[in-house]
Amino acid sequence: MNNTTKSIQYYRIVRIIRKVLFYALVILLCTIFLSPFIVMVTTSLKTSADAFTIPVKVLPRKWVFTNYPAAFEQIPYMRYMRNTAVITICCVAGQLLITPLVGYSLAKIKWGGVRIISALLMATMMIPYTVTMVPIYRIWSKLGLTGTYAPLIIPSFFGNSFYIIMMRQFIMGIPDSLMEAATIDGCWELKKFTLIVLPLTKPALTTIGIYAFLGAWSDYLAPLIYINKPDRYTLSIGLQSFFNLYTIDWTALMAAATIFVLPVIILFIFFQRNFVEGVATTGLKA
């Protein structure tokens, strides 16, 4: 009897220790994963002298907000932001317009091209951008459109394999019976699409819209190749103007980075489920 209570006690203690260790591990990992965010925000609230004083403290010795106005002054931040916003809105619009059309064609119309297009969608995702980079540059250069936003925006109006696959999977899940009634009524394909299928694709459209936003907002290589006038820079390129200074003003740069990252984090908080769905349904990286 005494022995069993002892062993019960022993197991209870072991369980508590294991629980404590587990929580310690989780908290440690979370702290490590959060630390870059913490460093970004706290640095943006330090004075320059504070950030460059040893020993380095995590929290500011003196909290200041002057870095935010300074970031807007040191580089034409509002202009970059507007440029980025214009490009992003156009790209999202393009993807939202095209993706459901192609997805519908592959999911619900029984025609000869479905199988080959589905295979090619997967194949195009395997092509490294480095291979197509130079010829695509030559196309835009021949058209005299380098230096404009056309090379950044127009490709969005021809769809993206990743989004189309996502949309095709979604539309496949819409029951055929919903559309059969319309077929009997002699509806046109386009009418069937706009009246019946399109309203139902809203959840998929939200997910695709978010991914398209993220892609355009963070895009780096395309603006780097095509945009050469400073007043046309996007934020991702423009932020590097901080590197042109003799010494990098890290406190202002971190303030600028915080504002750059903020829309993404807000979007993530509101649409977390869509982000997770996007990853889980296709099992592919964007």
Binding site: I98, L101, V102, Y104, S105, L106, I109, K110, W111, G112, G113, V114, I117, L120, T124, I127, V131, T132, V134, P135, I136, R138, I139, P155, F157, F158, G159, I164, E189, F193
Partner: peptide, 30 residues
């Protein structure tokens, strides 16, 4: 169906030709 399917997928087909298959072949020639 073939016509409809083709028309609905046309944006992607054009994009695939201009931004994937042509650049791929051009790059090989380059």
């Amino acid at each position: 169906n073939n016509i409809n399917g083709f028309l609905f997928a046309l944006p992607w087909i054009i994009g695939f030709t201009c931004f994937s298959i042509y650049p791929l072949l051009a790059s090989l020639y380059y």
